[in-house]
């Protein structure tokens, strides 16, 4: 109340009172406390990462106490629960790469085609409808896509191309196709953003010189947006490598060391999900194996993510 009166007196112009203090009327500990709380929430994300690394690292160290590092990385037989057990990760690593590659083979042309159409050809009205619908596709739970692959895609493809499904209903190629469906909106959305961020002046200059729409899209806009487009592909690849439910349902469970799309394969993610759901005791070699495979998966996706983040940052810096 006193403060108010002082200020009031100034407002009225005349009074000969001493000027009010410029020092804080209270130390405002609350503000500092709030800032501390907010900062600790942000730091929680760092703790999460640390926890992930620790939880992967400790059992992985135990694992390599029993299994040789080269036996793991370069061994060609994967049978961790058999006697005698074999811990060669190559079959499931190749399984992961195989399903991801088949997925990308489908998703890259479809995703980039959609992106070019959205950013260069679509009318604002069409865009306003198609983009959200694609986002819905991105939001469909992967278990649903997996079921679609298992119950629909697999029999249909087996009927048309029998060589694609050796052991019905499981197939690396069909799993890849289902994953690809899920990757299309990721590629389309990020690449579309990158291409739309290309300054309009560049397009107009090209049109002004009489270029066709196709040439503007492929030779002007596409190259200018290339870092964002590559980022979208890398992110999609990282999602494919980390995808679990689709491969669990469609790819089968046989650790075959092959890139054959018709073969059934076991991926790293499927191995983790399958093994961890069973009844396993902490500290057993099977338990540690889950973490060793998890560590490899984490490192792979981390490298891809950091690469993608760098690229995205680059194109945002250029245009914003």
């Amino acid at each position: 109340m006193e403060a108010r009166d002082t200020i009031g007196a100034f407002g009225r112009g005349g009074a000969d009172r001493p000027p009010p203090s410029l020092e804080a009327s209270s130390p405002r500990y609350g503000e500092k406390l709030i800032k501390g709380f907010l900062a600790s929430c942000a730091i929680l994300s760092v703790i999460t990462t640390t926890a992930i690394v620790i939880s992967l690292l400790l059992p992985t160290a135990d694992f390599f106490g029993e299994v040789g590092f080269t036996d793991f990385l370069f061994g060609t037989e994967w049978a961790p629960t058999f006697t005698p057990a074999a811990f060669g990760v190559l079959p499931i690593l190749v399984g992961t790469i195989s399903t991801s590659l088949w997925g990308m083979l489908f998703a890259v042309p479809m995703g980039l085609g959609s992106a070019i159409w959205l950013s260069e050809y679509a009318s604002p009205k069409a865009r306003k409808v198609v983009k959200p619908v694609l986002e819905v596709l991105a939001g469909i739970p992967t278990v649903a896509i997996g079921i679609f692959g298992l119950v629909f895609l697999s029999p249909v493809i087996e009927g048309v191309f029998p060589f694609m499904v050796n052991v019905p209903p499981f197939s690396a190629g069909v799993a890849g196709l289902a994953i690809g469906l899920m990757l299309v909106p990721i590629i389309a959305s990020i690449s579309d953003d990158a291409m739309r961020a290309v300054p309009g002046g560049l397009r107009e200059a090209a049109y002004g010189l009489g270029s066709t729409k196709m040439k503007v899209a492929t030779r002007v806009v596409f190259p200018a947006a290339i870092s964002g487009i590559i980022a979208s592909l890398v992110l999609a690849g990282s999602r494919a490598v980390g995808e679990t439910m689709v491969v669990l349902l469609v790819a089968g469970a046989s650790p075959n060391l092959t890139f054959d799309p018709g073969s059934s394969v076991l991926t790293m993610t499927a191995f983790i999900a399958q093994t961890a759901t069973g009844d396993i005791s902490t500290g057993s070699i099977t338990y540690d194996t889950i973490f060793a495979v998890g560590a490899l998966l984490f490192v792979l996706t981390l490298i891809m993510n950091i690469f993608a983040i760098r690229l995205v940052r680059k194109y945002r810096e250029v245009y914003e």
Binding site: S45, T48, T49, I52, S55, L56, L235, S238, R239, V241, G242, E243, T244, T269, I272, A273, A276, I290, F291, G294, L297, F298, T301, L302, M304, N305, I306, A308, I309
Partner: peptide, 12 residues
């Protein structure tokens, strides 16, 4: 980075 970590790793 965390936004790109596969969900199964969060399970681990």
């Amino acid at each position: 980075n965390l936004a790109g970590v596969p969900s199964i790793i969060y399970g681990i």
